[in-house]
Design a binder for these strands. Sequence first.
DNA 1: CCTTGAGTTGAAGTGCACTTCAACTCAGAG
DNA 2: CTCTGAGTTGAAGTGCACTTCAACTCAAGG
Lengths: 157, 157
Amino acid sequence: MPDLLTIGELSARSGAAPSALRYYERLGLIRADRTGGNQRRYARAELRRVAFIRISQQVGVSLDEIREALDSLPEARTPSPQDWARLSASWRSRLDERIRLLSRLRDDLDGCIGCGCLSLQRCTLNNPGDTLAGEGPGARLVLPRPTDAPTPARSLG
Amino acid sequence: MPDLLTIGELSARSGAAPSALRYYERLGLIRADRTGGNQRRYARAELRRVAFIRISQQVGVSLDEIREALDSLPEARTPSPQDWARLSASWRSRLDERIRLLSRLRDDLDGCIGCGCLSLQRCTLNNPGDTLAGEGPGARLVLPRPTDAPTPARSLG
DNA sequence: CCTTGAGTTGAAGTGCACTTCAACTCAGAG
DNA sequence: CTCTGAGTTGAAGTGCACTTCAACTCAAGG
């Protein structure tokens, strides 16, 4: 009844490349049994883990953080729907925050950059308060400084 | 009246590190005049370009695409508000799409992963139609294959 | 004039998330 | 038994967006 999956099957089902699955295993995100011939065999529960990994990435979570989340799952038993619900919920506020920021950015694109005032006064993208007061005069983007944000931004769901 | 900015000043105003500004220059995203002593001096218009770059990154656009967009600006004159409005508008649909996908993901987090059915049947995160029919049985995540998406997903506003 | 902070360069390094490679073995069909 | 496609490994490579470094020069105040 275990009904084990080969790496190729797990790859096809999860959408992750075999090389990515091996990489996840190295990082401790998933695990596999081995056949007598040293080939990986995945329990069906691993499929759910990979699904969680890929969805979490869409939310903008790093593999390191995903690993921490997965580490909080019970090791003794197969994680229950409630276990997964708890993990998923933990990304929820993050997702909300990201949606909120993007929505605000969209509004600003219409109302501020759209009008060409980009980086000038009275723009919502500029410092509206005085949080940067004392650092000298002049308008500043409200975007986080490099020290605050890991910055790298590639195409993301 | 040029009122030129040093790299330090542009950095402070734009939120981009000096090393990032030099990097943008190497990629042809911004330009700088030089003093007799070979130091960079930026026209105020460059501030707007850097603002556009950083905002575009928030939208999830690569520097390469941003360069292409900036290349479409008139070289002869200082870009007008209309020019910026046009560029900004070109990201709009992208931003909308990203917000839409994230919103859908949030709904799925509540309705599908939240219930623990992750990667199983009747889940909106699974193939709802038959776009993958013929590739064998079994549920599949709807997330794009590695070949379709550059994948890397770090924290992103 | 001296000092100090800000700026200059090319080359190399970083971090993440993988992918590719070469050289090899395994598993299942015929 | 043979063939082929799928799997194995560690090491190295990739792509993006930068950062860091060493060694140096410049600019401005005292």
